[in-house]
Computed example of a mutant assay.
Amino acid sequence: MTAPRLSIHDRMVELADTTRCRLLAALERQELTVGELAMALQLPQSTVSRHLKILADQAWIASRAEGASRWYRRNPLLDADMLGLWELVRGAMADTPAALQDAARVEAVLASRRTVTQTFFATASAEWDALRADLFGVRADLTAAFALLSPDLVVGDLGCGTGSLTAALAPHVQHVHALDASPAMLESARVRLAAFDNVSVAEGALEALPLYHGVLDVAVLMLVLHHVADPVRALREVHRVLRPGGRVLIADMRPHAHERYREQMGHVWLGFSEPTLHEWLHEAGFVQPRYVPLPVDPQASGPALFSCTAVAMPRPVMVLS
């Protein structure tokens, strides 16, 4: 059985107490704790708690726990009778000296919250990057930014290595094809990516991708193109597996003189200049290339990097005469 609906007379009795009306007014536009309400209304916490319980029991207010605190606000789902009655009561008390003083003190409470935050940042700005990295990881900001991607995207992480980028992309897109030419790398990738049901892991070289034509919306080549013997052939293959209008993202090294990388790490190319990459992309069927030098990480010992995006032109239709 559902509880009987209270009459408007019962509701009027609930709001007959001035303290409860003041509490409702304070909680109408923001959440406040018992301590903040006591400070704003200049009442003992015991009094505030007693009236909050009455208001909560009758569904005038809602609350939520956060850590050791409980936050209160006016119930956003008041029924029509309650909302109409509150509009009348609030209108009658809005311009009274007590209501104006309460509103001013609530603003002071909110200002004190902002002051605490501002004081922290005024003293912590020099250490903020290190503190945030310690709390949330070095690039939590970039990981969160993947949420800007459309959830309908099918992405190819081409040259996925051990799967770190795929793991960052997978929660935000429809599917990720994680491909690499190294069986050893793929073993690590499969372990890392086992929890994702929208990831396919497969062996495949950039010059011969094991994917159907036009299956990808986005193709990512993250620090892999410098290992490829024939970049133009690889880019043509990337173009093949992208839908018309799909995008490629290449992140790699800017031109450098570290010859030792060829023997130490199997690099074929010592970075890529903007004109060279633009020429190769055009030859492979891409348009609108955008080459952006990336900020240098002072902690990194390797060459400076760039990112480059381009759009796959529709494939020409062969007409037989």
Rank of each mutant, 00 (worst) to 15 (best):
A3T: 12
Q42C: 13
A104C: 10
A304P: 01
L85C: 06
T309A: 13
R192K: 13
P275C: 14
A194T: 07
V154A: 02
R132P: 00
K53E: 09
D102Q: 03
W128I: 08
L148M: 07
A104D: 11
L41C: 09
G271Y: 02
G214Y: 03
L88Q: 09
L158W: 04
A80N: 11
D152A: 11
A144F: 12
P298A: 15
S112N: 14
M39C: 06
A92Y: 04
D129Y: 01
H256C: 07
A98C: 06
G266S: 08
V34Y: 02
R74E: 02
L85I: 09
V296L: 10
E259I: 06
A312G: 00
C21T: 09
V109D: 07
M12L: 12
Y72P: 01
D102E: 04
E283C: 10
E127F: 06
A194C: 08
D81P: 01
D152I: 03
H239T: 00
V317C: 09
V311E: 08
W86M: 05
E259K: 02
F272Q: 00
D17G: 11
P76L: 14
V176P: 05
V238P: 01
V201Q: 05
P244A: 15
R190F: 11
D217K: 01
W60I: 11
T309R: 12
A130L: 15
C308I: 06
H51I: 09
D81Y: 06
D197P: 06
L270P: 01
R132Y: 10
G156R: 04
D102K: 01
A65F: 02
T96Q: 09
R132V: 11
R260I: 05
P4L: 10
L27G: 01
R22Q: 14
L24S: 00
R50E: 15
Q101Y: 03
C160H: 07
V173T: 02
A111R: 10
G271M: 06
V296P: 00
T18K: 10
P97Y: 04
L320T: 12
K53Q: 11
R192W: 09
A202W: 05
W280E: 10
L15N: 04
V268F: 09
Y72Q: 02
V199Y: 03
T123M: 06
A68Q: 14
L85P: 03
L27I: 06
T166A: 14
H256D: 04
R243D: 03
T276I: 07
A195K: 15
R22T: 01
E279F: 04
E107S: 10
I8A: 15
L153Q: 07
M313E: 13
P76V: 08
R114K: 08
A16C: 07
F146Y: 15
V319A: 13
D252N: 01
F272V: 02
H213A: 12
P303A: 15
A167M: 00
V116Y: 04
G67F: 02
A99E: 01
A16K: 11
V220A: 10
L193F: 04
V48W: 00
P151I: 13
L88W: 04
V220T: 08
H226Y: 13
I250P: 02
E263G: 04
E237K: 04
